[in-house]
Amino acid sequence: MMQIEFILNGRKVSAAIEADDSLYSVLRALGMYSVKCGCETTNCGLCTVHMDGKAVLSCSVPAARCEGHEITTLEGMQEEAARLGACLAGEGAEQCGFCAPGLMMNVFQLARENPHATDAQIDAFLAGNLCRCSGYVSQRRAIRRYLSMMEVQG
């Protein structure tokens, strides 16, 4: 067992971890239930969170490496979630919703890196976020709307 401290959604937290724990399991244990797990092979994107402002797969980040870093989950981005969520819900694009938190965290990253993304760029950027319900086309529309909305708001 080892003890780590990091910033979770703006607040300092500490956690007792095993040497081989992932950030994912620590976040679930801390009650960050928006973070989901959909595979064991880094393919699904459900566990996406931000580490120091970058979207990462929390399943693959060693918890021990998080000492002193800033971790953000959807719980810590509720205002942005409401805005993007409204776009997705307007299309019915969330369907079962299980992949939504991970997708949304990566969309926030996209909005920072490439706010004027084309459809092809949206798809390429979010390719690591799988969804089995929607067929993606409605999510693409919703994300485009969100990006243009953010642009208007500046």
Binding site: G45, V56, F125, A127
Partner: peptide
């Protein structure tokens, strides 16, 4: 670019 996804490539 084809390697899994941006989050994968971020680490």
């Amino acid at each position: 670019a084809p390697i899994v996804g941006t989050q994968f490539r971020a680490t």
